[in-house]
Amino acid sequence: MDESLQTFTTLPTERQPGCPFDPPKELIEAREQSPISRYTFPGGQKGWLVTGYDLLRSVLADPRFSSRKELMFFPFYDVTGVEIPPAAPGEFLMMDEPRHGRYRKPLVGKFTVRRMRLLTERVEQITADHLDAMEKAGPSVDLVTAFAKPIPAVVICELLGVPYEDRDSFQEHIDKLMNGEASDEDQFAAYTAVQQYLAVLVAAKRANPTDDVLSDLTDTDLTDEELKGVSLLLLAAGLDTTANMLSLGTFALLSNPAQLAALRADPTLIDRAVEELMRYLTVAKTFQRVALEDVELGGQTIEAGTTVIMSLNTANRDPERFADPHVLDLRRQDGGHLGFGHGVHQCLGQQLARVEMRVAFNALIRRFPTLRLAVPAEEVVLRPEIADIYGMKSLPVTW
């Protein structure tokens, strides 16, 4: 066992002043020393922290590492003596096979490249509507509330069949669950409200199916409880991650004017720009896995039952995989980022997210060619980094 490896007793979260897009420097420095480090959880349990691209990708693809939350320890909470319940029915992100496949397989056909391309025209209309509203409200707005949050909210709610009049409350509840700032009481209240609403929605779709994903799923053997869990997972994933990619991506472009100018000059660059922003920002920044048996990883033995923390944002800045990894380069050729994960749990809605980002970024920078930050970059407020999703509280812009 290599005693020279660094040991972390807390997961670094603070980004450096003037570098809001870079992972914490302690994680970068750890990866420079070794792609794997020791980790001691709040309750004293021993674990590992993976920061290198190749090692992290191998963990995500290895069925010997489990996604089951009831087996895990967590970087910010002492769960010693606490019985962590298994994932609720339908919440397949925290399940292994075969339970994971039971929920994912009926959804795969709903999120194909072809079906998402067919949605492009509707995403363009939703985006145009919000840009119209921005223009009327301008010349200064908070891009998070005017643009980044509502566009994916409308898209995912339409896809699931959530009535228009319920979308604002849905967005508010999901935000409380995901943003890392709400109290435990507020999070529980938001979770309860969403669960109660979904129970009513599932019953309504069973009685009167409409043209949406949830109605389609009522024609499977999934129970009402399972449909609630699947719907909650899709809502949370479809709202929060894409919303933060739209706001952080705009912030990154405005902070890199040469790259923004290149995208304005060449709209065909948008596909590559989306992939590079996913790599550069990596909003889904941290995951955990648990070894189900002893596994050799990076020259170390990961003992059965040990939790491994995976720093995806650090892996996506690994110079062994990406040239000049801390540079935002919209013409980058070395793809293969882990922004959507990897393996059996790779993001189910990644093609939908790509469509939303392509449409929204291109439309925004063309509608507002003089778009700029309304405050100094250092005054832009990010969400607390304790949240699993890297995100923004507000982004004041003007034009």
Rank of each mutant, 00 (worst) to 15 (best):
T127R: 06
R31L: 07
T7F: 05
V355Y: 00
N316T: 13
K69I: 10
K393A: 12
D271S: 09
P152K: 07
Y390I: 02
P267G: 10
V141H: 04
P24N: 00
A237C: 04
I28T: 14
P89V: 06
L60Y: 03
T112Y: 04
D294M: 06
G341V: 04
S183K: 10
P163M: 03
D318K: 02
D216R: 07
R38I: 00
Q187C: 12
V290N: 03
L143V: 10
A387S: 15
E293D: 15
T250W: 03
V50A: 06
P86T: 11
H326C: 09
S183F: 11
P384Q: 02
Q6I: 14
S34Y: 03
M94Q: 12
R57S: 15
G391R: 00
P20C: 11
E3F: 07
T210G: 15
E165R: 11
F21A: 10
L277A: 01
P396V: 11
E225N: 10
L281S: 10
K285R: 14
M178A: 13
S34I: 05
L373N: 01
G90Q: 06
L201I: 05
P376R: 09
R372F: 05
S183R: 10
A262Y: 08
R104D: 07
I270W: 00
A148F: 10
L297G: 00
L160E: 01
S169G: 08
V290H: 01
R366Y: 07
L330D: 01
